[in-house]
Every structure is written in C-alpha cells, then in structure tokens.
Design a protein around this nucleic acid. Sequence first.
DNA 1: ATCGGCTCGCGCAA
DNA 2: TGCGCGAAGCCGAT
Length: 458
Amino acid sequence: MATVTDLWGDDPRIEIWRDGEPAADASCVMLWVQRSQRARANLVANLAVELAKELDLPVIAVFAMTPGFPSATLRSYHFMAEGLATLADDFAARRIGWQLEIGDPVERIPVAARKLGAAAVITDVNPLRIGREWRRDVADVLEVPLVAVDSDVVVPSSLFPKEEYAARTIRPKIYRVLEDYLHRIPDPLPPVESFHREGPDPLGALDAFDLDRSVAPAPDRHGGSGIARDRMRTFVAERLATYHEDRSRADIEAGTGLSPYLHFGQIAPMEVALAVRDADVSQEAKDAMFNELIVQRELSINNALRNPDYDRYEGLPDWAKKTLAAHASDPRPEVYSYEEFDDARTDDDLWNAAMTQMIHEGFMPNRLRMYWGKQILRWTESPQDAWEIAVRLNDRYFIDGRDANSYANIAWCIGGRHDRPFGPDRDIFGIVRPMGMGAMKRTFNVKRYIEQVRSRWG
DNA sequence: ATCGGCTCGCGCAA
DNA sequence: TGCGCGAAGCCGAT
C-alpha cells in the first residue's frame, strides 16, 4: 500500500505528522478527536472514512480528556464535556465507534491506537503550541501513520506559510481562493459499522478532575453541536441582516455568540459561512460577517501558527515594542493589581461591568474586549504587566480562553498586532492606537449596558 | 457634524 | 523607488 504522503501529501488541508503505510491486518481506522469536537461537517472524520473505505474497515473516534491541563477551570471543562457527552450518539449515527480516554493524550492516544489495532490515526489541526506538541509527541511513539486535517478553517492555513502582517494582506489572498474551498461538508459513512463504545460519561468524569471550581459553568451557555447549530440559525434568521450596523453594540445582542463553540470545534466555520452566504440578506451584512468569521479569525490562526511568540509580549511587532518602551516610565492615571482587576474593582464603571460579565458569563461583547484590553495597558506599571494580566484573566474566565483569537485580540489591544501605528505620539500608548470612553459612547449606549449587567449580577 | 493630520510599513505599480 | 492605504481613535479646526 502507498504511504500517507503518496496518498495526501499534496493536499493543502493535510499535515503529515508521521509518514508510512497504513498498517496491514489492522482492525480499524482511528479518528483522534482533539480540536474538531463534532461528528458532522467534519473533514477529519471524512478522511478517516475515506481510508476506511480503502481498507474496508470500521472507524473508531477516540478523545483523550486530560485532567492535567494547565490552570484549567470547571467552566471551560464543563462546556467541553457537555459537547463530548453527545458525541457517542452523534458518531453512532455515522456508524462510527466512540471511546473516551481519561488522561494525557500523549500517553493515551498511542496506547488506544495499539489496543484498537489502528491502521492509521487521523486527527485535526490545532494552531496552538500545546496542540502541536501533542501531535509531535504522539507521532514520536506511534507505530502507524499520523495525519492531521485542517478542518476548522474555511481556507487551509497552509496556503499562508508566512506571518501575515494585517487583515489587508490576508484578505485578498483569502478571497482569491474562497470559492474553491467554500463547499458543504458531507457526512459519508464508513463501509463497516462500529458498535464500539467505551469510557465514562464525560460530565461525571469531571468530578475526579483537579479543576479550579471557583470559576463556575456559564449560565445559559451550554456546550454541544446541536445547541451551536440552533444558535447559528437564530443568528442568521434574526440578527445577520443588521450585523454590519449592530456588530459593535454591546447594549444589544448583536453577535453570533458562537466563539466558544468554534473554539471547541462543536461547529465548523464552514457551516456558519455557508449559512451566511445562502441567507437572504444584503451583501453588506454578509461581508461584515465574513470579515469576522473568516478574515479576522483565520488571521488570528495564522498568527498562532507562524509567530512562535504569539502568546508572549516579545511576539509583538517591533514598532509597537519600541514605542511602548519609550513610554514605559510615563505616569499612569491609576495602577491596579491583578486582584483588583480580577474583582472588577477599578474606578471605571464600564470596565467593571465588562469584567463582571466576563466573570459570571464567560463572555464579553466584541467591542468591549478591545476597550477592556486597552484599559489594562493604561492601568498597569508596564506593557509587559498588562500582557500578563490580560492573558491570565482571558484564560481564566472566557469559555473560549486559550484561543488563537484571544491572543490576537490582546496583541491588538496592547501591541498593535494587525493594526497600524496611530499618531500623534501620546502618553503610555505612544503610537499604538488608543481607545477610550469616547469611542464606546460613540458606538453604543454605555449606560444601558452597565445597567443590564448590574440587573443580572448586582 | 465632518475633516485632516498624526505615524509606520506592506505590497504593488513602475 | 514611490505611493496608497490600513480592525473600528483622538483632537482641534471649520
């Protein structure tokens, strides 16, 4: 049989992590579910099915839920586990088996592959450092090929091999090939049905995990592909038509609210993009949505993939680090400690309201995510401190913390990433674009937003 | 209410 | 080598 490089090496959506021929006399094709935590509209599952057809084998999906993820909170794990809880049935509907492993994927995945007699392991692409280390370490000990499919972007990330400078540099490249990639993802069935089902209930398994339980599950925002799809349909039916006008408003629900679902791969960006494309709304509304869903999101993913310091202050553009250094000793109007930020105890009612929503709901409207980050820069001793505090709060409270989008957002706020310099040179910010209360008042009813948060959370 | 200038560097035209 | 213009700002002039 041919090697996986012979089979798929030229496909821009495929990464070969361990080359070789799929094992002969195997019992299944193993689908290592990591980032694409869904059974449908899943190009990873589809490649596993393609190979299974070739070999006349069943497909078994395996997820390794690690109890040891750094500073993990109950909130993000609970959301993920709610999504995983439906996967056994969702995969069964595609004749695919299911196994939930508890433990470090680097240990559990190779063991599961051996026990299940996998011909090869097919997984998803993850742009973050830890995800890439997992794939590298699994590939090192695996005895069969490991292939990853870039299933959570519309345009494959490999088409952008260099670090993109800004939205304006990646946008034309995306639109040039968008038609080639914007297609409905089918749900083909493997030739042999698997009835394999093993492992605990994921929500119950969390009881034994060492999680930070002071960050409670988000109310009214439950994980799962079905819920994600419902939310997408509601957005398209009720809010997409005015998205280009309303997207910056925090005082009404204007966005999709899909970012946590996209983060855990419970919905494919392709599904959302097609629902938007096919909706009966103005081109202006569609363009505005595509800009967020495809251009900015895939720009953030490019940043994580191509900038080795995407989650560190050092990774900011040189012009920004230079100007921030020149203003490092400027006096700050206020300086707050991490604890004061974490308690939403600044002297700014809007910032506190945004932080309060983040603490309780694991969510913040997109416009406020900018204001929130810009003020942290204004109110800390150094831009390095601002970076550390923003990342720490982000990863602690947002359901979709530790996302490529989070790092790009914080990098935009603090260090002009994907932005341009903005004169004149001013205190603290230098020529990094400032943002203050004026910009907020110009775009939405600040008082109304604060009252909404207070009525919900005191 | 609207407008220009501030400031840097990418990418394209030439 | 020159030039247009850019993730969504701010300030002052008109």
